[in-house]
Design a protein around this nucleic acid. Structure first.
Lengths: 214, 214
DNA sequence: TCTATGTTGGACGCACCAGTCCAATTAAGG
DNA sequence: CCTTAATTGGACTGGTGCGTCCAACATAGA
């Protein structure tokens, strides 16, 4: 009775949600079989329908759960920008690397992939994710940039635009190098991606007079 | 006998290819019915199988055709960078706007969407598109940047990285504002996106001494 | 121990869809 | 005009997968 056998109902719900997102994220909504999901969750198919009633409801629930996880992970990555002290370049490289880690995470890619793939059938997923995750992360980043600009450590007038461009500088090159998430990126690769993005970002928005580093 | 009725065999093949990509791009490969494709092409289902034999072959053929169109459109957009004369900022804004037009095109979004969505079933699509389109466009852009750098009009050492970052600055903000291609962007929106990207790009890589504009 | 609720495996109905087949029609080319 | 090849509509098959049902089983709480 280590842990494998039936431990309780609530655990099964979790297991089903995780398995559903894993399978659907891997094979797509249409291709994902409920039988496969049930098997991967270690659960009978009837149990799946007991909990969620519908393949569509199951998909929505699992997607929402993962989007939630992605959001909290991203916000946690931004947390290092809370204190305005320390070397600016190091600070930005650190937050950049953390954001890229979130961005390159398997789950994060699956969310974006499903968002694009199933948007025809489930247009509301985009509302949830965009206004609940993307916009929220962007606003938080913009707030941090605004504080840094006010403190004279960044030279910019539109913090929201700067936040958009910062993420663009981060993710653009990485999208290509990972071939849209199909190829892993090493730890050094992540660090390099963050460093290059911050390099350019600071060349554009760094304090005008003296750069933090020669 | 204006044009609607059967005009020839070769036209039907085109019509089938276009209809196939339209339907599959809209509904996804699994959801797209061959009957629907045939109807949209104004053709009997048997004709589809006469030409392509297989739903999978039909998909590959239609995808390849569209990828080809996307590639030529992108390369055409880069053509304006051929002459190194003229105001640098105007030049870059022009090419940026053209690239964004390509990027925001319905077909271009459909290609990227299918690339992500069906990558599980068709991993080779990514090879074709990545090495045949994305890499080719990036290399061309990097070549132009290298020439501009050599002419002292850009201040950069790694043209390939600059090309990655230029496209990141262009597409990152636009991805968000169009909600991943689900919402149209006005002509002014495109121009603004290009202008902002070029602003930041030139702040980072513009000629060090004197900016082209105050 | 008894009971209620959740779980299991498996079988089943049902709908949908890729791909085939065929007889009738149409267009192309010599 | 005649032959050849392509097209058409429609019926048909086989396979797959969602969702249901049910009888037996496990578990938690009284």
């Amino acid at each position: 009775m280590e842990a494998t056998a039936a431990r309780g109902r609530i655990d099964k719900r979790r297991a089903i949600l995780d398995a559903a997102f894993a399978v659907i994220g891997r094979e797509g909504y249409a291709q994902a079989g409920v039988d496969v999901i049930a098997a991967e969750a270690g659960v009978a198919k009837a149990t799946v329908y007991n909990h969620f009633g519908d393949k569509e409801a199951l998909f929505r629930a699992s997607f929402a759960a993962q989007a939630e996880r992605v959001l909290t992970a991203n916000l946690a990555a931004l947390e290092v920008l809370a204190d305005t002290g320390g070397d600016l370049r190091d600070l930005l490289e650190d937050v950049g690397r953390r954001l890229l880690e979130c961005y390159c995470d398997e789950r994060s890619w699956a969310v974006r992939r499903l968002l694009l793939a199933e948007h025809g059938q489930f247009p509301d997923l985009l509302d949830v994710t965009q206004s609940g995750v993307a916009d929220r992360v962007l606003q938080t980043l913009a707030d941090r940039f605004a504080r840094l600009a006010l403190a004279g450590r960044l030279n910019l007038t539109d913090p929201e635009l700067a936040a958009e461009q910062f993420t663009g500088l981060l993710t653009g090159p990485v999208d290509r190098r990972t071939r849209f998430g199909t190829r892993p990126l090493s730890e050094d690769g992540l660090r390099a991606g963050a460093r290059e993005a911050v390099d350019t970002f600071l060349r554009a928005f760094g304090p005008s007079g003296a750069p933090d580093r020669p």
